[in-house]
């Protein structure tokens, strides 16, 4: 299922959140990156039918999101995990999923219960399923959120910061699950954890200030930092100037800095760029422009 976004604009009063976004999201995993306030969540909410576009067009498969019928049709095939997922503290994990399944139109009780049990196992909450959600940790609530998004076996899965609050093992497990799911459906992974996109997605878009500043493959994004990534060992002060320190690791005699910069700092050696370097390089270029 392909998503076609053309000239999408969203204004909140005088504040523009999206400014003429053009984007095609094909089937499979698609990563959406960007800093806070870039417009990612607004774009997700428009795709989920929660917000209306101020201008432009969005088509999800054959459904036109500018119409009520189109938005409603997308809701039937959608799995959505919002960034801030609220749950009912007085319900157990199983009850919450059952309730959401009913609201998703899963009428057959036996199939619904079987699906809930299956997803509780998938997200590893078997032991906590009968406990009230008020007793869940942040990570456990996130896992319940992931399970609810998958209840209706959605053709379109939109997950906004899905791995926030998960421990490293859970993150890896969830990422693998997304990749497995993505085979015959569209999975839109919206995050600012670049590593999650690097490990899951072939295609990626980068939003900044409500505009798409990169749209291509993850390899292409990493290549945006070709010739701009440097490693520098120093016992003195941290490098400064027109550069971004991507990482700083303590070594035996001082610090090892990984730097993204157009001009190599003195004494630095070039290293191969990663996706994170590419992200930083694109941001640097756009901010400089």
């Amino acid at each position: 299922m392909e998503i076609q976004i053309t000239g999408l604009t969203k204004q909140f009063g005088d504040v523009p959140a999206l400014r003429g976004v053009d984007l095609t999201i094909p089937s499979g995993m698609f990563g959406l990156l960007g800093p806070n306030g870039a417009g990612k969540t607004t774009l997700m909410r428009i795709l989920a039918g929660i917000l209306h576009a101020s201008a432009g067009a969005v088509r999800v498969g054959t459904h036109d999101l500018s119409t009520d019928a189109g938005r409603q049709a997308v809701k039937w095939i959608l799995g959505y995990l919002p960034q801030e997922l609220g749950v009912y503290p007085d319900l157990t994990g199983t009850e919450f999923l059952e309730y959401i399944a009913i609201l998703k139109g899963m009428r057959d009780g036996a199939r619904r219960r079987a699906r809930v049990a299956q997803l509780i196992e998938t997200v590893g909450l078997e032991d906590a399923a009968r406990r009230q959600l008020r007793t869940y940790s942040g990570g456990m609530k996130r896992r319940i959120g992931i399970a609810q998004a998958l209840l209706n076996d959605p053709r379109l899965l939109i997950v906004d910061e899905p791995t926030a609050g998960l421990d490293p093992e859970e993150r890896i497990r969830f990422r693998n699950m997304l990749v497995a799911l993505a085979g015959d459906r569209t999975v839109l992974l919206c995050t600012h954890i670049v590593e999650d996109v690097a490990q899951t997605s072939h295609r990626v878009a980068l939003l900044l200030g409500g505009r798409v500043v990169f749209d291509g493959t993850t390899t292409g994004l990493a290549q945006a930092a070709d010739g701009r990534v440097w490693s520098l060992d120093s016992s003195g002060p941290a490098p400064s100037g027109d550069l971004t320190v991507v990482s700083a690791i303590a070594i035996e005699r001082g610090m090892r800095y990984r730097v993204v910069s157009e001009v190599p700092p003195a004494g630095a050696s070039a290293v191969a760029p990663t996706l994170e370097d590419g992200y930083v390089a694109v941001m640097q270029k756009r901010r400089a422009a």
């Binding site: 929660i50 039937w76 919002p82 609220g86 609201l103």
Partner: peptide, 10 residues
């Protein structure tokens, strides 16, 4: 919970 509920077909 509103954001999730608003994304559902109910």
């Amino acid at each position: 919970t509103l954001e999730l509920l608003d994304s559902l077909p109910a």
